[in-house]
């Protein structure tokens, strides 16, 4: 067991080394830090960045917008997902809107958003919201449709009040779907919020990337990107640890069987 973890780690390290090698070769080929800076330059920038207080201010600003968008999407997405899951009528009525929302490029919102709100926190929050909303709605609706049909027959037979069936059977059945929709959403949320800030933000990591792009500070752009990736991976690891904590695991296990 221990050796296999070690050998896995070794393979991961080898994989990272391979990326670094390709990067360095490409960087030597372009021979311009404006196109692709050397890794050493990027890392120097990165360690300079994390020493600055402004980075952490920007990070918290980005976090705030990202999670506001997520909470908003959950607040609207859960009830709408339930509605679609329960009712064939609403499922058909809202499907075109959902497909539209899911396929619409975020930049298409931009003109209207910028006229409405201008540059600021509203646009990134909104863009995170509209990106996550269809994901959450789909997941919840799917969850409702997979509730054990045999249990629902017992519900029907006993004329159980809907309120009781909802709290006792539907809600626990879709908890895994709520968890998985949050897990899927968080990765998407993080990439989206940075892109949205880049396009329409006032402060935040995405704005920093935009400014440095404007001044052709390519090493700094990559240093921020490296930071975004690190935070994104950490978020997913933290979330995974939270959802597989003993308490939640117990409930998840019970719900899954």
């Amino acid at each position: 067991m221990k050796t296999s973890i070690c050998s896995n780690l070794f393979k991961y390290a080898l994989g990272l080394l391979l990326i670094a090698l390709v990067w360095e070769l490409a960087s030597l080929w372009f021979h311009s830090s404006l196109i692709l800076p050397r890794l050493s330059e990027v890392f120097a920038e990165f360690f300079g960045l994390i020493d600055e207080a402004s980075l952490w201010m920007n990070l918290s600003s980005t976090f705030l917008k990202a999670f506001s968008g997520l909470l908003l999407a959950l607040a609207i997405g859960l009830p709408v997902g339930f509605l679609i899951g329960f009712s064939a009528f609403f499922s058909q009525l809202l499907l075109p809107g959902l497909v539209l929302l899911k396929s619409m490029p975020i930049i298409s919102w931009l003109t209207s958003i910028l006229i409405l709100w201008g540059i600021g926190w509203e646009a990134p929050v909104f863009i995170v919201f509209v990106t996550l909303l269809p994901i959450i709605i789909y997941n919840i609706a799917q969850g409702i449709k997979t509730v054990d049909k045999q249990l629902l027959e017992v519900v029907k037979l006993t004329h159980l009040p809907f309120r009781k069936a909802f709290a006792g059977i539907y809600l626990p059945s879709i908890i895994p779907f709520i968890i998985s929709s949050i897990e899927i959403s968080v990765g998407t949320m993080w990439k989206t919020v940075v892109a949205a800030e880049f396009l329409a933000g006032e402060k935040g990591i995405g704005v920093q990337i935009a400014w440095n792009k404007y001044y052709v500070n390519t090493p700094t752009v990559f240093a921020y990107t490296f930071f975004v990736i690190l935070v994104g991976i950490s978020l997913e690891i933290l979330l995974d640890a939270f959802f597989s904590s003993p308490f939640l695991k117990r409930w998840r296990g019970l719900w899954a069987t």
Partner: peptide
């Protein structure tokens, strides 16, 4: 009342809760 061929119990409820829930 119907005793189904399969037990059809609610997995996240105890036996007592299963007996009283409906």
């Amino acid at each position: 009342a119907y005793a189904f061929q399969e037990p059809r119990l609610i997995p996240w409820k105890t036996v007592k809760e299963n007996l009283t829930f409906f």
